[in-house]
């Protein structure tokens, strides 16, 4: 602690350095990074804004500016709302499940029990696997023809189900697979959070005769707020961007039933040569992700301060 304070003091002193030192910004050191980001992210992003006002088909040299036509088309397109609904389901649904299950796993695996580290490893393992391949792995489970799920149903004498072809069920299966793959991250962050809570609090509460549930509500939960913030924000951002798993499990089908904004954009651009419209959808997606993740961040940061 003392060490840390010392460096902080020095930093405070040095920030009052003579002017000459401070004005040298050493800008050439970040020039390569700035160029890379400008060329491959910022320029395309602003160019995308421009394309969203055109009727460009994605390959011809000429195109016309059509004003807000693509935008009004987007807002009156029923597919847009279906896809936005799915995207929110993937983003918020996965977040909810990953946090509830991740916290439960963390509470369990924070106890000194057998098979603890093995179980942690097994739960965490899918995090490092390609989401696309994780999707294929679950495909073998849910597939209509020769899938493991239907093998059970047949064994029990029941009807086979086409789980991935069912438009109301398959969106939940996508949430499930995404949760299965990334629940390990939430678990690890909650474990770290639990281990940072001082045992003294619990001992004091026990002296006061608090029950296990009371201890959880009054001590564990409030002190876990920073971990909850991190988990909520990263899971929401990850879920709203979902692409690979959908491609692997359903391809976005049947029809548009399980498309997310990313897969919808891909489909519009590559299969329908509707580049102007695809760019417009890209703008909407960026706006939605920005608004949701920033408001989640602000909301949970505020909670953290209160707690």
């Amino acid at each position: 602690m003392i060490e840390l304070d010392k460096t902080r003091n020095i930093q405070m002193i040095t920030s009052k350095k003579p002017k000459k030192q401070r004005t040298s910004s050493l800008w050439w050191m970040y020039l390569p990074a700035l160029l890379a980001v400008t060329f491959f992210i910022l320029y395309p992003f602003f160019n995308g804004l421009k394309i969203s006002f055109t009727n460009w088909n994605g390959f011809s040299q000429s195109y016309g500016f059509v004003g807000f036509k693509q935008y009004s088309r987007m807002f009156s397109d029923s597919n847009t709302w279906l896809v936005v609904k799915n995207t929110l389901l993937y983003g918020l649904g996965s977040t909810l499940f990953q946090n509830i299950i991740g916290l439960a796993y963390a509470l369990l695996l924070n106890q000194s029990i057998k098979v603890r580290s093995l179980t942690r490893t097994i739960i965490y393992l899918p995090v490092i696997i390609s989401p696309l391949i994780m999707g294929y792995i679950w495909y073998f489970f849910f597939a209509y023809q020769g899938g493991a799920l239907n093998d059970i149903l047949v064994f029990l004498g029941l009807e086979k189900i086409n789980a991935l072809g069912d438009p109301t069920l398959n969106v939940w299966l996508i949430v499930f697979v995404n949760t299965f793959q990334f629940v390990g991250i939430a678990m690890i962050i909650y474990l770290a959070g639990l281990q940072s809570i001082s045992k003294d609090y619990y001992e004091a509460a026990e002296i006061d005769g608090a029950t296990g549930f009371q201890k959880f509500i009054k001590i564990t939960f409030p002190l876990l707020m920073p971990s909850i913030t991190i988990n909520m924000v990263i899971n929401i951002i990850g879920g709203l961007k979902l692409f690979d798993v959908i491609i692997a499990l359903t391809g976005g089908g049947p029809g548009y039933a399980s498309q997310s904004m990313s897969t919808f954009m891909y489909d519009l651009y590559f299969n329908r040569q509707d580049a102007g419209y695809a760019a417009t959808q890209g703008i909407l997606m960026a706006a939605i992700i920005l608004i949701i993740s920033l408001s989640a961040l602000i909301y949970f940061k505020r909670k953290e301060v209160e707690a």
Binding site: G48, A279, L290
Partner: peptide, 17 residues
């Protein structure tokens, strides 16, 4: 701020680039 924007929202112009 770039960190928050998924690069693929700019898929169309990036592909063209």
């Amino acid at each position: 701020s770039i960190m928050v924007i998924p690069p693929l929202t700019a898929l169309v112009p990036l592909y063209q680039l």
